[in-house]
Amino acid sequence: MASRYGTLRDIPLEEEVVPGTMLCAGCGGALLVRIFEKMLGPGAITINAAGCMSLLSVFPYTPFKSSWFYIAMASAPAAAQGVRDALDILIDRKRIEREDDLKVLVLTGDGAASGIGLQATSGAIHRGLDFYYLAYDNEGYSNTGFQASESSPFASSTKTTPPTDLAEGSILQKKDLFEIWRAHKPPYVATISPAYIGDMMHKIEKAGRMSGPKLFIAHSPCPPGWGIDSDKVIRIARLAVETGIWPLKEAINGEVTHTIIHKKRRPVEEYLGTQERFAHLFRPARNERIIRQMQQNTDDYWNAVLK
């Protein structure tokens, strides 16, 4: 089916999230939410698990033009289930009009998505709940000052994985949420990036034609957590795709396709070198072993994809 979003210029102009939030200047997550809500349009309800984005509305202010619901960290998908089921009941029984219906969006960080909320998400996907899920993956618990989450990349430094002589930041690998979600065979799961808004719009549009779980994992640069200047957010997100660290892909009913493929990938150290959280890999001495290992991991991934 043809896309309404041929170029960036086709972006919906109506803002669903108005200015004035308490989020950091240059927050990657804020940009993702802004674009996602534009694509959903009015008549959405955002079910927000505790995390940075749950500070979007703080009494008595809200930037949202549509409904928003703050839920405990572990159970946003369960609230989505309750809202969706209730709307269906009310529509069935003609107690509300079709125009009252809402698109249900679960919005959580990677901590809730990969850790404490994974059970509730698995349940919702398993039940075939018709909802969108946007996980803004800033690779740490940013709301509490950036501690390691299950989504923190290997060798990254966080407040709870400080680099020392013994360990190179986080010694654990990033949890592969895409594969975990995909194993449930939802109709749609995709990765997105704030540097590839066109790709993102196409994916949201495509998912919008499907019923059931529509799941998105968004690379979400976090200036204070990653130790980057706020203006570099898009550049760094772009580098993550160009180096192959953040593959852009989708899976329809479990079938994976990569949507952006850079035949010639930049070396991963170009990405790593932009961020304070990887600085210990370069200073005081270059940690060749770790950098090489990370390059190898990325190469292995893409070799398997391109085979």
Partner: peptide, 26 residues
């Protein structure tokens, strides 16, 4: 009525509250 088995009591009570706020007796 609609009956849904949730993944835990934590989710179950979340879903119950959310449905009630959406307007159905729960």
């Amino acid at each position: 009525a609609r009956f849904v088995t949730y993944d835990s009591e934590h989710s179950m009570v979340t879903g119950a509250g959310a449905a009630s706020l959406t307007g159905v007796r729960t």
